[in-house]
């Protein structure tokens, strides 16, 4: 049986339209590797938040800056590493959006959703690199 695993490394310009194209490519790879709808929804949501964060907050929408994207999709899991050219941040400084006093604030919800939906999330170095893993859910959890 031919391998369906995918390994991609690419440099993205800081253009939000690129996020749509990448999402489409990743969805194709996930489907080819047997990921279910719920896992794909979670990965799409985490990628949306992480890539928009990298371009908007990291690169400040500066089109002279780029985002480095590496991802692999295997029948077992999805791994991704996203690096922007910004100054980074300390994820511990982002307030918990689910405590009552923060519920009506707009910030921090994207990072929280990433943590909820991915199996593992790591911020590397000064915080301008995020590495995430999503293990494929067993069929009965889909």
């Amino acid at each position: 049986m031919p391998s369906t695993s995918v390994k991609v490394a690419e440099t993205l310009p800081t253009e939000l339209a690129e996020v749509r194209r990448v999402q489409s490519d990743i969805k194709d790879a996930l489907q080819a590797n047997g990921f279910g709808e719920r896992d794909m929804f979670h990965i799409e949501l985490a990628m949306e938040e992480a890539l928009v964060n990298a371009m908007k907050h990291g690169n400040q929408l500066d089109t002279d800056k780029a985002v480095q994207l590496h991802y692999t999709v295997t029948p077992e899991q999805f791994d991704v590493r996203i690096e922007d050219e910004g100054g980074g941040f300390n994820p511990d400084d982002v307030p918990d959006p689910t405590v009552p006093e923060n519920l009506e604030r707009a910030c921090g919800r994207g990072l929280y959703m990433i943590r909820c939906f991915m199996t593992e999330v790591r911020y590397i170095g000064k915080g301008n690199v995020v590495a995430m893993t999503k293990k494929k859910s067993p069929p009965d959890e889909e």
Binding site: F41, L45, E48, E49, V52, L103, A106, R109, G110
Partner: peptide, 15 residues
């Protein structure tokens, strides 16, 4: 599908 940015807009509309 919707992102956290859309959630923020809904919160402001609610407010």
């Amino acid at each position: 599908f919707m992102s956290s940015a859309a959630l923020g807009k809904l919160i402001r509309l609610h407010q």
